[in-house]
Nucleic acid binder design. Sequence first.
DNA 1: CGACTTGTTCGACTATCGATAGAACAATAA
DNA 2: TTATTGTTCTATCGATAGTCGAACAAGTCG
Lengths: 131, 131
Amino acid sequence: MRIRIDPTLPTPLFEQLAGAVRSAIIDGRVIGGERLPAARRLAEGLGVNLHTVLRGYRLLRDEGLIELHRGRGAVVATRIGGHAALAGAVHDLVDEAKLHDLPESALLALVSEAYRSAPSAPGVLRTGPTR
Amino acid sequence: MRIRIDPTLPTPLFEQLAGAVRSAIIDGRVIGGERLPAARRLAEGLGVNLHTVLRGYRLLRDEGLIELHRGRGAVVATRIGGHAALAGAVHDLVDEAKLHDLPESALLALVSEAYRSAPSAPGVLRTGPTR
DNA sequence: CGACTTGTTCGACTATCGATAGAACAATAA
DNA sequence: TTATTGTTCTATCGATAGTCGAACAAGTCG
C-alpha cells in the first residue's frame, strides 16, 4: 500500500494518512487481519512525527476499521470486507453532485446533515465516540 | 423558513446557518428568486453578529446557491430547481453507510476523497473559489 | 527472565479559526 | 435624496487544532 503525504495541502497530515489507509480498506486493497506498518517506522518513512501517524491510526480505530495493540501494532479489522456497495453509492453521489456543479464543501455539508437527521441502523448497539 | 442556531454545538455558527438555508434550497422548500432575510435583521433575530450571518451567506454564494446584491439583499439563485436526484443519492449513501456502521466522519472523508479524485462534469466551465 | 517493540499518556507550544466589534464605503431601492 | 443592504478593512480575544518531546506500560519473542 502506497501512502503519500503532502505538507503543503490544507488537509491535516494525520487526516491524509487516515484517508489513504481508509480508502485502501474500503476498496479491499488490504484484507482484514493484515498488519499495517509500525507507527514509528511509518513516521520516519513519511518524515512526520510519531504522534501524527498514531493519531491517524487512532482515528481509524475509532471508526472501527482497524485495531491497535501495544507490542502487536495496527491490524485491519477482520469484520471488514470489500464494501463494494458503499463505494458505489459514494461514486454515484459524487457524479450527481458534479452534474449539478455543486462544490465539495456543499456536498459534504449535505451528507453531514442527512447523516445526523437519519435514524441509526436497526439492531446495532452504538458504542464508542459519538462525535 | 425556520432557522435554528445553537452556540453550544461544536459546529460553527455561520456553518449552522448556511446548512439550514442550504437544506431548504436543495429540498425545494424555498424557490428560486425568493429573497432571504436581510443580514442585519437576521443577525439581530438570532442574537449573532452581522459578520457571522454574512459569512454564511457568502458561503452559499460561493456554492452558487444564492446571489448577493447591495441594497437588494440575498436571493435564491434562479437556476436552482428540484435536486430530487441529488437528495435521493445522499439518502441512499447515508443508508448504506449506517448499514455498515460507518461513522459520519469516515463517510465524509470517503466522499471528500472520491470528489477530489473524480473528473469534473463535462462541458462545465469551473469558476470561482476552488477550495 | 530480559531485551525489544509498540502503542499510550502527559504536557507543552504555536498557528489558525471563529466570533465579535466598529467604521466607512458603494450599489440599489423607494 | 434618504434609507437599505451588502462589501471591505482593521482589530481584538478566546478557543481549538495540529504538531511535537519525553517518559511510560502492555505485549512480543528469544
